[in-house]
């Protein structure tokens, strides 16, 4: 098997890593393309594979677990060197992961985790949702520098884990700064139109002049809220500071016009760290930790938002 040949080669340790990676065949089972971010993840994964000369076998599951399981079985039958999977749900993976393990094919989870024993997969590459909220909160603490600030919050879909974690993270981030206070918090369902509707009600219930900052759990809601703020005759970004999460192209466009202030990136590049881990494993036998956390990078008005917008807009967001 190719996999065993790799191990022998890595024991010899003469061959440079880049050449090693070039020989790899990796299967990638993607959930589908239900959101712009998901589409961007697919694009970036293909780009990263091409950059490293990896032969990527891509399977779109169209939101169905049975399609993902089928794809995994077909990858195993083809004898790929490794499998990347973004699992659509958390449960029901034990059997197929067991099969991959028996065939000695390492599996790396992307973006989401599963409820299965952690010896069934090599590692999980995900973002820390709580940390994202914390970064956003810390930014606002620094930005305000002690000045009093009443914050309104647009939450994600009630009960969803990004909404819960990003809320808790932000609260951790502003904890200890008594000048910052969340005065209103309501769900905007992660959508532009609800973000706009709920911001309209905030502006009337609290009074636009009393709101100092908006924290939105995703950029789309922030983009909707920006329109509501403009229609109320206020200047988004100046009268009301805006910080959100995801770093989608449209928020960089808003930042370019000074209408939003900061965004925390949920990187679509989950595959890059996964390929690096596989590379290290195959060439040097380095077993990665069970969780690889992606960077939650903060973008502000100081960054080159025009350049970021131009690079991101073609990723499929």
């Amino acid at each position: 098997m190719k996999f065993k040949a790799m191990l022998i080669a890595s024991a010899m340790a003469f061959v440079p890593a880049s050449v090693m990676a070039a020989d790899l065949t990796i299967g990638f089972s993607q959930i589908g393309s239900e959101s712009g971010w998901r589409a961007a993840e697919t694009t970036v994964t293909k780009q990263e594979a091409e950059k490293r000369g990896i032969n990527l076998k891509f399977a779109d599951a169209q939101q169905k677990q049975e399609n993902q399981i089928k794809a995994l079985r077909s990858f195993i039958a083809q004898g790929v060197d490794a499998i990347l999977i973004a699992p659509v749900v958390a449960t029901g993976w034990d059997e197929v992961l067991e099969e991959a393990k028996e065939s000695e094919i390492p599996v790396i989870l992307l973006d989401r985790t599963v409820d299965a024993s952690d010896d069934l997969y090599m590692t999980a590459v995900t973002s820390d949702l709580v940390h994202e909220g914390r970064v956003a909160g810390k930014w606002l603490v620094d930005e305000m520098a002690g000045a009093k600030c009443d914050i309104v919050e647009l939450q994600g879909t009630t009960g969803s884990s990004p909404a819960i974690d990003r809320k808790n993270g932000f609260e951790e981030g502003i904890a200890g700064s008594d000048n910052l206070k969340i005065v209103r918090s309501q769900t905007g369902d992660f959508t532009r139109s609800q973000g706009k509707v709920v911001m309209e009600s905030f502006l009337k219930a609290v009074g636009g002049e009393n709101i100092c900052a908006l924290y939105a759990h995703n950029d789309d809601m922030a983009v909707g809220a920006i329109q509501a703020i403009k229609e109320a005759g206020l200047k988004p970004g100046e009268d009301i500071k805006i910080v959100s999460i995801d770093s989608v192209p449209d928020i960089h466009l808003a930042m370019l016009e000074g209408e939003a202030n900061a965004t925390v990136e949920l990187t679509p590049n989950m595959a890059g760290p996964a390929f690096d881990a596989l590379d290290a494993y195959f060439s040097n036998g380095v077993v990665p930790p069970k969780w690889i956390q992606t960077e939650s990078k903060l973008y502000t008005l100081k960054d080159d938002n025009k350049h970021i917008y131009e690079t991101k807009r073609y990723l499929g967001y």
């Binding site: 239900e34 959101s35 369902d189 959508t191 532009r192 139109s193 706009k196 329109q227």
Partner: peptide, 14 residues
């Protein structure tokens, strides 16, 4: 109207 309101067509949520 809904698309015009947010200046964008959101096929998933509209």
């Amino acid at each position: 109207i809904v698309a015009a309101d947010i200046k964008g067509a959101d096929a998933n949520n509209a």
